[in-house]
């Protein structure tokens, strides 16, 4: 190092840095020119993706620092929206609590269920496997069919569950499953679990069927005693990619619960018992048109998701070690 500085006195660390940057930039530019057809291939998707997916997140973060009601131009108010959310908005704190309860229960439980079912199904004969896959996955794709639960949990004596429980003498009068705050959260959790196996479930099924058979044979030689050891030491470490994909899907589904609570418990729900962050967001964004405030809610939700993903990612990398 010393000899370099001696022979070229003008070469300070900074100028060397600049020179290196210049070379790098020229290289990058050459690479870009070489691949210009590929940019044309990517351009339609990249442009649409930027305009409709990436930019909106940036814009949303920007709006979260403003007061914006669509009619007047946005006015910068710093962190006021965030301060209001956490210090002055009781309903938001309820919404955060509910969303966390939902995410902490339906996220991990739904995720583990999805994996266990996929794992159970994996050893079934082929046609039975296709059928069972359909049974478990159908609720996810049936869309608004979750509203059928409103008949099951209906608060009058004709509600399926009420009628059933009354017939067997477990209860004497109908229970208001969807408007008594005592029961609303468990009911919503059941419904969300029912419909949230999601794309992760399919990824698990597919992932399990691609694990190399010879690994299991090697495991047998090494003395893997039962299927649970096999699961932990061979199966799980070999499908970390799928596990990560499933986690991303589960985080999205569990943090974004909103449609179900609105559909089953109404909006707003009794005592805000199942009011979620998404319900709060829709309230301010689509009903009150306080876009700045709604954007702040969206930003918080977004950060919570990203943070959870990185936490879960670290955990998954430790599996089987």
């Amino acid at each position: 190092m010393a000899s370099v500085t001696a022979t070229a006195p003008a070469s300070t660390p900074f100028s060397r840095y600049l020179a290196k940057k210049k070379v790098q930039r020229a290289y990058t530019w050459n690479e870009m020119k070489k691949h210009k057809t590929l940019y044309l291939f990517l351009a339609p998707y990249a442009i649409l993706f930027t305009v409709f997916v990436v930019a909106p997140v940036g814009v949303s973060i920007f709006f979260s620092f403003t007061y914006f009601n669509v009619l007047e131009p946005p006015r910068f108010i710093g962190f006021q929206n965030y301060l209001n959310l956490f210090l002055a908005d009781d309903v938001f704190l309820i919404a955060i609590r509910n969303t966390l309860i939902l995410a902490l229960i339906t996220g991990p439980v739904g995720y583990i269920f999805a994996f266990l079912f996929a794992w159970f199904i994996n050893e079934l004969p082929r046609y039975l496997r296709a059928f069972v896959t359909l049974v478990f996955y159908a609720p996810t794709i049936a869309g608004a069919a979750f509203l059928i639960w409103s008949l099951i949990f209906s608060g009058d004596a004709f509600g399926y569950l009420n009628a059933f429980l009354m017939q067997f003498g477990i209860i004497n009068e109908p229970v208001l499953w969807l408007s008594n705050p005592q029961f609303m959260m468990p009911v919503i959790i059941v419904v969300v679990l029912w419909m949230s196996l999601g794309a992760g479930f399919l990824a698990f099924i597919a992932g399990l069927s691609t694990i190399d058979e010879s690994l299991y044979e090697a495991g047998l030689m090494d003395g893997v005693k039962n299927r649970w050891q096999e699961l932990w030491f061979i199966t799980l470490p070999n499908m970390q990619g799928m596990l990560m994909f499933g986690a991303v899907m589960a985080i999205m589904a569990s943090f974004a619960v909103g449609e179900v609570t609105q559909g089953l418990a109404g909006f707003p729900s009794t005592d805000y018992a199942v009011h979620t962050v998404v319900n709060h967001l829709v309230d301010y964004g689509a009903i009150r048109f306080e876009m700045g405030y709604a954007s702040a809610i969206a930003t918080i939700l977004f950060l919570a998701m990203i943070y959870t993903k990185s936490l879960v990612g670290k955990f998954i990398m430790k599996i089987g070690r």
Partner: peptide, 20 residues
């Protein structure tokens, strides 16, 4: 970037999307 956005639900982007 695409992987990260797999996690977005439409709610996060709904407002700016409407404006665009």
């Amino acid at each position: 970037l695409v992987i990260i956005t797999l996690m977005f639900s439409g709610f996060v982007t709904a407002i700016p999307n409407f404006l665009v």
